[in-house]
């Protein structure tokens, strides 16, 4: 299933898509595969496989702590591809979320090639803007991968237009100004950002940063096409796959409550 099909299916069901994030290699490579599968078993429509990075400047303590655990456990880039391969082989659609330097170092084209070979559908790039992405634009074309850039509440209309024009698959709307982490309330900026973004594109829009409860998932699914959940799953992962599956089920109910 492609990213477009994942969103089309959710839309046909008149609900939001649920996208779950966990880092590859957290707490170990094998356990991360089980945890990612548990996301899908619980009801996630798509996986976002995190690439552990030494300097995660847009992540709060929860995700940064988890990726640090993965790195200390010896997780390598080649393990990320193997995780993607194992979850996609199990039938879970997956994209990766990665800071750009590991991709640069690996070689942008080689990274895209190996990601595509592993069954990955695309890449979310939180510290890459389209203006710096020439190599990735070319590599994603060459290897048939989707490109998910971010828009933010501070983005101007001009920048939103430029960013969505470079996207393929979906657009990631970072709903708050800040780092990743679960929050008690959905940021008030999110609906406005989604509305502004919609004016510039027909692509599905996923909203991330802060969702942790069924009620929040329902609220976000009311105005966005996809609900992206990360930190809450990382926290749940400490209690094992069953807890992750239960949270995913709860949130999956939420995206159907809208």
């Amino acid at each position: 299933m492609s990213v477009a099909e994942v969103f089309a299916k959710a839309k046909a069901d008149e609900r939001g898509a649920l996208i779950g994030y966990l880092p590859a290699g957290f707490p170990t490579v094998d356990e991360s595969v089980e945890l990612l599968k548990a996301l899908v078993d619980g009801g996630c429509d798509m996986l976002e496989v995190g690439v552990p990075y030494s300097d995660p400047v847009i992540d709060g303590p929860t995700v940064a702590g988890a990726t640090d655990v993965a790195l200390r456990a010896g997780t390598r880039l080649r393990d990320v591809f193997s995780v993607v391969e194992r979850v996609t082989a199990a039938g879970c659609p997956a994209v990766v979320m990665t800071y750009f330097n590991p991709v640069l170092r690996y070689g942008v084209d080689a990274f895209a090639r190996d990601l595509a070979n592993a069954g990955g559908l695309g890449m979310i790039t939180p510290d890459l803007i389209p203006e710096e992405a020439d190599e990735w634009l070319a590599a994603s074309e060459a290897h048939g991968l989707d490109r998910i850039f971010l828009v933010a509440p501070s983005s101007s209309e001009e920048r939103i237009a430029k960013t969505v024009a470079a996207c393929r698959g979906f657009v990631y709307a970072a709903s708050t100004m800040g780092v990743t982490g679960a929050r008690d309330t959905v940021a008030s900026a999110a609906p406005a950002l989604v509305a502004r973004t919609r004016a510039h594109t027909d692509l599905p829009i996923g909203v991330g940063l802060g969702v942790r409860s069924r009620e929040q998932a329902a609220e976000v699914a009311g105005f966005a096409d996809g609900v992206i959940v990360g930190s809450a799953f990382v926290t749940a992962a400490a209690q094992g796959p069953a807890r992750v599956r239960a949270l995913a089920a709860d949130l999956a109910a939420g995206v159907r409550d809208r």
């Binding site: 400047v57 330097n101 850039f149 933010a152 983005s155």
Partner: peptide
């Protein structure tokens, strides 16, 4: 050089 930062910071840098 350039700008390898989150989109959220671009407005402030501009």
């Amino acid at each position: 050089g350039g700008r390898f930062v989150p989109e959220a910071l671009i407005a402030a840098l501009d």
